[in-house]
Every structure is written in C-alpha cells, then in structure tokens.
Design a binder for these strands. Structure first.
Lengths: 228, 228
DNA sequence: AAGCTTGCGTACCGTACGGTACGGTTCGGC
DNA sequence: GCCGAACCGTACCGTACGGTACGCAAGCTT
C-alpha cells in the first residue's frame, strides 16, 4: 500500500501537507500586516487561493487555524545547539553575545511580534480563551512552550557549560538565565509589542547586547571574567 | 455665574463627571474578566445601567471609550515622590526594594494586565489602529506615556539622588534604569500577559525584588554598597 | 406649572464575520 | 474513457456587534 500522501507531503510542521503549510504562510503574512482582525476565514482563503471549506476541513476551526499558525511558525525556529566543549573566556563571551543578538533578533521579528500580539489578545485573566483544535493547548501556552522555553534551553546549556568550565558561578541556572534575559531584553519587547518601531530599536541591539553581557559577567563571572 | 457642573462633578480624570467615571469603572471590570471582546457597547451600557446613546455622546466612539478607560485608569496611579534628601546606604537600598515591589505589584495587577492586553491587541506593525477621540493619541502610546514613563520618572529621580549622594555611579540614568527594570521584571510581565497566573508569581516577588536590587547595586553601587 | 435638558431603555439598521452547502473542475487510479 | 477524491469559488445563513433613532421619565430653570 503505497501512500502517496506521505511521500509527497509533510513539510516542517507536524503532519502538514505542503499546501497546508503554504496556506499557513499566507495566513501569517496576513496577520503580520493586519493584526488579528485581518485573519478572517474568508481573507485567508482568498489570500491563499483556497476555499473556506478546505480551511475548515484542515484546521477545524478558526482557533484551530490560529493554533496551527503558531505551531507552524514555532516549528521553523530551530535553535542552534552550541558545542560547549573547549570553552574559553573569550569564547564564552562571544557565545553570550551571539545569544543576546539572536534573542533580540527573534523577539523583534515581524512574525514573532504579530504572534505574540495574537496570543496576548486571546488571553483572559490567567485562563486562555478559545479551545485549540489539537488537544486543548492554548495559544499563550503554546507560544511559551515552543518559543520561550526552546530558546531558554539553548541559553541554560551554555550557562551550564560556562559553570562546568569554571568561568561562571551560580546556584540556579534558570535564575541566572532569567537575569541574563532581563539584562538583554529589559522592556524592549513590550515596547515593540505596544507599537514602537522595531527598526529604530534594532540599531541599538549591538550595544544593548554588549552591555548586557558585560553586566552579566560582572554578576556571575568568576575572577577576571568581567574584564574580558 | 455659578457653574454647578464644575462644583459637583469632575472626578480624578480630565473633565469626567462622576457618572462617567463610574461607567468607565464598570467597563474596566468588564474588561478585566472578559477581555476586549467582552467590552461591547451594549455590555458596558447594561453593566453600568446607562444607555448606549449616552456612551456615544460621552465618548464618541468605541475607540474613544477604550482610550478613556486607559486614561482614567492611568490617572488613578499616582506615583509617590520620594524625598531624596538625606539618602543613606541603607535608605537607598530600602527605596530601591520598595520601588521594585511597587513595580511588580503594578505590573501584575488585574487591571494593568487587562489594559496592556487591550493596547497590544490593537497594535499592528508599528502603527496603531483605531483613532482615539482625544487628539489622535493611540492606545499603546497612551499606555506607554502615562504608565511606563510615569513610573520611570520616579525611578530615575531616585537613581539621580543616589548618584548625587555618591552611592551610585553611572553615566546615563535612563540606561541604568533600564538595567534595573530588566533585573526586576525579566520576563515575568510577558509571561503574565500570556496567561501565567499572577497569584502564583506574586509569591516570588519579594525574593525577586531583593535579588534584583542586590544585583543592581553590584553593578552600579560605589564601593561597599553592594554588601549593604 | 410649563418648558427644557439629561439620560435611560429599547428597538432598529447595516455590516461583517464564522461556519456550511453546493456546483464545477482537476487529477490520479482502474 | 470512466470514477472518485480532493479542492476551488461562491453563494448562503445566522448571529453578533457598532452605531442611530425614538419614546419617556426625572430634575432643573423661569
């Protein structure tokens, strides 16, 4: 039994045909420059040259579509695993700076901002609205799991490597990561979510990243690390 | 010419009668436990026992109503000016801790979270949607001006006082404040915006504030400040 | 007491959107 | 060459909401 559907299809996300991925891509574009209200079922269908009926067949629901959009986008972000061996002072600093820049780049991305706005807009009082199609995971949680946690893992492994190499000192890796995150991002993310122009902020990213890393090393670096 | 309207009316906000303030209060309650979609003109009218016609007469528009809600709530937050004279080492630390706790309390408040979600939900790609009634200020900008900046001023004056007393060392007060903000808040605000239960996080606020202040003093404190 | 303003309650209209149904078309399999 | 599945395009339905209009009661001003 030769299953064509499996050989030809299956893009990045979990069990999505190419067609469906293309549709989600269109939907994301729509979301990016129109906000949530621009993502109407008719609008997506028109933009993607597909029928509403297919949308409902594939995603079940408008909420299902939104969830799929988040899942799809999150699936595209692959965090580069850092090879932590042979970590030198300068190497750690470089890796931290690279991480800081990557983090700022991700957070300031058009799609990321749009999806965060979407998820936040759906959120109500600690509970989330709208039942997602695939198993009850909600948009906010989804975004947190697939985005934040994912990128956090990369950072914590880096920090652990630094500690193991005797370059960093901390008790709780998550706490240290929290500090690093705060130093890097401060309120930039929220300001962008509220509408501040990301392009204007991107110019400051390099300096911001450097300062954050320097401060972080001052706080958690061992010995002469801070001066590196 | 004895103007009754002025003697009897005018609550906290700019030119709002008591009745209107009461209506806005109802609307805020509605927003807090229903999200933006719960704030319908009919719903607000019903909750506040007023007519839709009055709503439109007073606020002109649904967007005007939303703007008024933000302005009203922002008007209620009065930041306590710190008397910066006679600043001691311990005093500075206490003030910083108090600020940190206040900040976390404000950001985790139900109304604050709801309004931030509202403003973020209205935001699209650097521009803001929906023309506010009063002069074109938009929701995101409004929230930023009246909330963030306001509370930021309190912090920067405190930091300036610390520097003048020779307890802190920094070049740019805003930059130092940014660092302080990041250390205190990290990603807690965003997590709450995405639906994390604020009550669960509030338990960690005290410890979080202390750690943040200690770190901040390590970075910017002069001499033995950090050990205070 | 008459008149006017204010504002409540309700009914109403237009529109936009989520969701469904149906006819027509393309494409792979027999 | 025929069949069925998938899918497009569109038309359709119900509902919900923003915004407006009208009728009517309460509280002033004169």
């Amino acid at each position: 039994m030769q299953v064509v559907e499996e050989s030809a299809a299956k893009a990045s996300g979990a069990g999505l045909t190419e067609r469906q991925s293309a549709v989600l891509e269109s939907a994301l574009n729509l979301l990016v420059d129109g906000g949530e209200k621009a993502v109407t079922t008719a609008g997506v269908a028109r933009a993607a040259n597909c029928s509403k009926e297919s949308l409902y067949k594939w995603f079940g629901d408008r909420d299902g579509l939104l969830s799929a959009m988040i899942g799809y986008q999150a699936g595209k972000v692959r965090t580069v695993e850092v090879r932590a061996e042979s970590l030198t002072v300068e190497g750690l600093r470089r890796h931290l700076s690279a991480f800081a820049l990557d983090l700022l780049d991700v957070l300031s991305g058009d799609v990321s901002l749009a999806l965060n706005r979407l998820a936040i807009g759906q959120t109500v009082r600690g509970e989330r609205r709208g039942g997602a199609a695939s198993g009850g995971a909600t948009l906010g949680r989804l975004l947190e799991e697939r985005g934040r946690r994912q990128i956090g893992r990369r950072a914590t492994t880096l920090l652990e490597a630094g500690r193991k190499a005797g370059l960093l000192a901390f008790d709780d890796a998550d706490e240290a990561y929290g500090t690093l995150y705060g130093l890097i991002v401060t309120d930039a993310h929220l300001r962008m979510l509220l509408g501040e122009d990301p392009r204007a902020m991107k110019k400051e990213f390099a300096g911001r990243a450097e300062r954050a890393v320097t401060s972080f090393l001052t706080l958690y670096g061992v010995g002469a690390m801070a001066d590196a």
